[in-house]
Simulated scan of single mutants.
Amino acid sequence: MDPYEVLGVPKDADDATIKKAYRKLARENHPDVNPDPIAQEKFKDVSHAYEILSDPQKRAAYDRGGDGVFGGFGQGFTFTDIMDAFFGQGGGTAQNRGPRPRQRRGQDALIRLDISLAEAAFGVTKELEVDTAIGCVTCQGAGTAPGARPAICETCRGAGEVAQVQRSFLGEIRTLRPCAACKGYGTVIADPCRDCAGEGRVRTHKTLKVAIPPGVDNGTRVHLAEQGEVGVGAGPAGDLYVEIRVEKHDLFTRQGNELHCVVTLPMTAAALGTKLTLPTLESDLESTPEEDRTFALDVRPGTQSGTDHVIKGRGVPGLRGGRGDLIVTVVVETPTKLDEGQEELLQQLAAVRGEQRPVGQLRATKKGVFGRLRDVVAPH
């Protein structure tokens, strides 16, 4: 019987086409779905056809004229092939079986680093001491004592798995399970390395330098490739992620790439105007030149409390370039305690300005977005 005809596929069909045809026919003719005896026989034929065409060696032998390979239910038919047909699960082919490798990739690691606002804004290089795993120098990752070698497992003979065969109406169904004696490795370490206890790696502390780029913020993660733990068997190292936590600043707060600060002025300075010299965020860094440690703020006469002054390009650099602004909010302080002389001077000023009995003026609150939009579109 021609397996190509059984599955209804051309002789040049690829693996995906063969598998798709097999799944369809297996579902239609499985005894649990179709109790017809003819369907049961067809299910056997379909399963055996797939056994041949899914195995490159058996398919090549059949294509060369080896009709004998389709002469009955073969012993290579496994329970995983049925599961593959019904649930789409891989792993039933021979190339996916065999002993597990002892060498595995190490786990990724996450550590948190506290830095100042200035360091987050302008970048910094920090040294970190991390607890991690490195390859064992004594056994070079093999896990065996010096001079020893892993022995072939006597239970599975190095295959890493053992077969269990059961008989059913389908014939012999074989299931493969990891070998319990060697845990699926195919070899057994009878004399493990004393330094790493057979793991091929040991715990240690090491110091790393991490470059924090300018513009990072709370929660930013810096990725250090292959700086995590070395895997079992001295496998490739995982990655290390450094999560940034920015400390609060005494003067400045950050909003995106903008810096905000508040300067308080006496009532007289706000009324008469003044010039102030204030520290920059860069002044927190020892490497900052003297000319960049301060900036000048020109407070014009009559400045009201709550007035914002925008200092261009004095904010936080962006991770992709550019730099935000510094917003300085002026708060005018009203004196709460006056001596007799000060009180007299203020009374004289009030008399000159006609403010002995000031009349308060009510003003509407600021309109919201919809209120302003209504004013724009309303007919005049």
Score class of each variant (00 low, 15 high):
R203C: 02
R221A: 14
C193G: 02
G160K: 07
Q140A: 07
E129C: 02
K206D: 02
K206F: 00
H223Q: 08
Q164D: 14
S168L: 09
G200K: 04
A180N: 05
A148R: 13
G184H: 11
G158D: 03
R149E: 09
A151T: 15
E199S: 11
V188A: 03
E199V: 04
I212P: 11
T204V: 03
G143Q: 04
K183P: 00
A120E: 14
T207N: 14
A121P: 00
K126F: 12
L170N: 10
A180V: 08
T138S: 08
F122I: 05
Q166Y: 02
V188C: 03
A120V: 06
A145G: 02
V202P: 04
A118L: 08
A197P: 06
T132C: 11
T187S: 10
P178Y: 01
E199W: 11
F169W: 05
E172T: 11
A133K: 05
G143T: 08
G160C: 08
A151Y: 01
G160H: 12
G160E: 11
T207E: 11
T155G: 06
Q164G: 15
G184P: 10
V162S: 14
T138Y: 10
I189N: 02
P214S: 06
T187I: 04
T132G: 03
P150G: 06
L208W: 04
P150C: 11
L117A: 07
C182I: 10
E129I: 04
E127V: 09
H205E: 07
R149Y: 04
G135H: 01
E119I: 01
P150H: 10
R174S: 00
P178G: 05
A181C: 05
A159G: 08
V130T: 15
S168Q: 09
C182P: 14
L128I: 11
K206P: 05
A159F: 08
T125S: 13
L208Q: 06
I212V: 15
S168M: 10
A197W: 08
V216I: 09
R174D: 00
A159C: 03
R201W: 05
R174C: 00
T187M: 02
A142W: 07
G184N: 07
I212E: 12
T220W: 08
R203I: 06
D191N: 13
G184Q: 09
R201I: 09
T125C: 04
Q140I: 07
T220P: 00
A148N: 11
E161L: 01
P178M: 01
V162R: 15
A121S: 12
A118P: 07
F169C: 12
R194H: 13
A145Y: 06
T155H: 07
K183H: 10
V137Y: 15
G141R: 01
C153W: 01
A148T: 11
P150D: 12
G171M: 14
K209P: 00
T204C: 09
V130M: 14
R167C: 07
A121K: 01
T144E: 10
Q166W: 01
F169K: 03
C139S: 10
R167L: 15
V202W: 00
R221C: 15
E127D: 13
T204Q: 03
G158H: 05
